[in-house]
Design a protein around this nucleic acid. Structure first.
Length: 764
DNA sequence: TAGTTGGGTTTTTTT
DNA sequence: AACCCAACTA
């Protein structure tokens, strides 16, 4: 019995078709990772291909790590020399060796979004761009899109003829690249662009890599952009042994430049390509799968396919609508608790998915109250947090002083009395003498007008030099601890009244342990190696399985994962699909949202729960939203709750009247928008013509005023009454970060800790 | 120079 | 609601 016997016919085809281009259209849950890993095993064990000649590219480090692990499991020895990485790390590795051929130092730094913004701000000032009219962010996103399409500043300028806005952007683009080069830095997009540039410009390098990578596999191919495709095409140009795996229905990164044509036109670029379809789903129950199919069927412009399963129907898809978003959160938390209690599911079997990161908060708060172990994935990247970026800036400065941005970030953090005026003088001196900011600092005495600040700058330089002299012998752990100690970073946090101080210190501890484990994993790594690794980690990379927590994350982050129990929260038109895609005149946008819905639904193995709220606070104003159209696209017979769905149907019939959907999408507006803190009476006229009538009004009276946290009118020792838990005695009351945390010993329900605003306790 | 306050802005998703 | 920035004050 061989390891390939367990594969189905189509999967086998995918494994055994090793020569020439292969397009593997793999539906959700169809076992594409199995095919890829077995394919690698087959290449090595049966065809005698050296692991050294195999490359597999994924999108996240997590996916890469898992693939590597599974291959190792299959083939044992030799698997470690397979190049399994992300696009970005691949490029970093290439550029690390050859960036000098493009006029960069091989030890370049990688700029994150924050860094990009600082650079752009500077440029806008210099070019006198009015950032009220043309924001840094939009310039950067235009540049990013250009890079995704491999458009150079020159080409961009040519295309900008006659368009003032574009001309400004072209100017900024040009300056931006110049600034990055001066700082020896690349942004995320540059990593790909520069790698492509290098391979195109340098035959020797290209042939070198073509010789090495004789078999190339690309996972999540539907999310590649033009630049990434070009990279792969170049590498595979000699062997043509390129196997791409993807699912056009799961293409959800158009905003990041993903070019769906890469997958739809693969056969045009490679007419000899073998096309293999994996349509049997091994993940979900029939009900879940049917729901997914029913939703995605509404998209045009897809490679038509229908997933099937031989599993049973399983549970119906659950759907619940609530008045308020916090009630939705309550429901999800209660349902998780119920499943845990009844032995249906453990915490780690559940995941809550939502459209936007901001939605995590309400759910998180509720989970805290109920004591459910959870982990929020995403939001602000760990390495983008202020305290972490500060400390990393120290490390970067110690590693090499060429990163001006890093030096400036920490020169006065913690406060050393070095202000903006002083920094400007140093920068000016650096500009005149064409040296880095740090080098200028080293020559303080020559800088005119620096005055009393000189001694402070001197002290800073001395401190950095002293770190540098010690870095050799005390390693990463010793270094970071010394930095924290010497700068007093943590002690300053401890002393501060910043309410996040505790979190920040926790994050710093986390950073220390990350450095320690990096050190143990890599022998004696250099500081540079650590900083490089850190620049490319995504939040999802740090999610380890097995600690039995409910995961909370965006639908985007959930791609590629699966859970027995999935909650899709915030299923509301205007939230998901998002408001922007509804009002857009580009119909492709709503299709991308639908693909996102498809991704969400297909994450569920056994049980799928959809939920939404009639009212929800978005950016400080309460919005009333209809049930998501995607819910309406799921056939009723697959669901357990028909009432709200019928309301959706009514709305569909009257959609012109309400300004929803259909051709007149650009006239969309939420059913009503409420200013906070109005009374129900005040709101009545506001929504009278809105469409939901009494429903919405009923909700408002319940919602307003409930979420404001002042000191409650009860205290420790008082008897109180809760809507659900009945009567009890208050045993604790303490002010929390946003609201009073109240502990109540209920006569029947036992002890509960809750936020006062949510608990709605009544004194008796 | 540092800390505070008030005003303006916010497209959702991320390597 | 949350964040960022500019202007103002000590």
């Amino acid at each position: 019995m061989s390891i390939y016997d367990t594969l189905n016919e189509e999967q086998k085809k995918g494994v055994f078709t090793t020569q020439g281009p292969v397009l593997l259209l793999a539906g959700a849950g169809s076992g594409k990772t199995r095919v890829l890993t077995h394919r690698i095993a087959y290449l090595i064990e049966e065809l005698g291909v050296s692991p050294w000649n195999i490359m597999a590219i994924t999108f996240t480090n997590k996916a890469a790590g898992e693939m590597k692990e599974r291959v190792e499991h299959l083939v044992g020895m030799g698997a470690e020399s397979i190049w399994v990485t992300t696009f970005h790390s691949t490029c970093v590795r290439i550029l690390h060796r050859y960036a000098d051929r493009l006029g960069y130092d091989n030890h370049f730094t990688i700029y994150d979004t924050d860094d990009q913004k600082s650079v752009m701000k500077d440029i806008c000032k210099r070019l006198q761009i009015d950032t009220k009219l043309l924001k840094e962010r939009s310039i950067l996103s235009a540049i990013s899109s250009a890079k995704d399409e491999l458009i150079s500043p020159k080409e961009y300028e040519l295309n900008a003829m006659g368009d003032f806005r574009k001309q400004k952007i072209a100017q900024a683009y040009n300056e931006y690249q110049e600034a990055l080069r001066k700082s020896n830095a690349m942004d995320f997009d540059d990593l790909i662009v520069k790698a492509v540039e290098l391979l195109k410009a340098d035959r020797e390098v290209l042939e070198n890599y073509q010789k090495r990578f004789k078999y190339i596999m690309v996972d999540e191919y539907q999310d590649t952009n033009t630049a990434q495709f070009e990279l792969v095409r170049l590498l595979a140009d000699a062997s043509h042994n390129l196997c791409v795996v993807g699912d056009d229905d799961q293409s959800i990164y158009k905003f990041r430049g993903a070019n769906i044509r890469n997958i739809l036109d693969f056969e045009k670029v490679y007419p000899e390509a073998a096309v293999i379809r994996l349509e049997q789903n091994y993940r979900s129950t029939k009900n879940v799968l049917d729901a997914a199919n029913a939703v995605i069927r509404n998209n045009k412009g897809r490679k038509s396919k229908t997933l099937w399963t031989d599993k049973g129907s399983g549970n119906p898809v659950h759907f619940r609508q609530f008045d308020q978003a916090y009630e939705e959160a309550e429901f999800i938390a209660d349902d998780v608790v119920r499943k845990k209690r009844e032995g249906i599911a453990d915490y780690g079997d559940c995941a809550v998915l939502y459209r936007t990161n901001a939605q995590a908060r309400l759910i998180e708060e509720r989970f805290v109250v109920e004591g459910i172990p959870y982990k929020v994935v995403g939001g602000i990247n760990f390495y983008a947090r202020r305290e972490i970026k500060d400390l990393l800036a120290y490390l970067k400065t110690i590693d090499n002083g060429r990163d001006d941005l890093a030096v400036k970030r920490i020169i006065n953090v913690p406060k050393r009395g070095i202000g903006a005026a002083t920094i400007a003088k140093v920068q000016n001196y650096a500009d005149i003498h064409e040296m880095s900011f740090y080098d200028a600092l080293c020559q303080v005495d020559d800088i005119p007008g620096i005055g009393k600040s000189a001694s402070r700058l001197d002290a800073f330089v001395t401190m950095i030099q002293s770190f540098r002299s010690k870095v050799e012998y005390y390693g990463l752990e010793g270094l970071i601890k010394d930095v924290i100690e010497t700068t007093g970073y943590v002690s300053e946090l401890e002393a501060s009244d910043d309410e996040d101080a505790e979190d920040r210190i926790e994050n710093i501890d986390e950073l220390i342990s990350k450095m320690v484990s990096f050190e143990t994993a890599h022998g004696e790594p250099t500081l540079g190696e650590f900083l490089e690794e850190v620049a490319l980690v995504a939040d999802i990379d740090n999610v380890e399985a097995g600690n039995n927590k409910v995961l909370l994350m965006t639908l985007h982050s959930a791609k590629g994962l699966e859970f027995p129990h999935i909650y899709l929260a915030g299923m509301e038109d205007g939230v998901f699909p998002s408001y922007m895609t509804i009002v857009s005149d580009d119909p492709d946008e709503i299709e991308e949202e639908r693909r996102l819905a498809y991704v969400g639904i297909t994450r569920a193995k056994e049980d799928l729960t959809l939920s939404c709220a009639r009212m929800r606070m978005i950016r400080g104003e309460t919005q009333i939203n209809a049930v998501s159209r995607f819910v309406g696209e799921i056939p009723q017979e697959l669901m357990d709750n028909r009432a709200p769905v019928s309301r959706y149907r009514v709305m569909q019939q009257n959609e012109e009247e309400y300004g929803f959907a259909g051709k007149s999408e650009s006239t969309y507006r939420p059913v009503a928008t409420l200013k906070p803190r109005r009374t129900a009476a005040e709101n009545k006229p506001f929504i009278a013509g809105g469409g939901l009538g009494s429903l919405a009004v009923a909700g408002i009276s319940k919602g307003v005023g409930a979420v404001t946290g002042g000191k409650p009118d009860y205290d420790v020792g008082d008897r109180v009454k809760h809507v659900k838990y009945g009567e009890g005695t208050v045993t604790g009351l303490e002010p929390g970060p946003r609201d009073y945390k109240v502990t109540v010993d209920f006569d029947n329900a036992g002890q509960k800790i809750m936020y006062a605003a949510f608990a709605k306790l009544e004194r008796i």
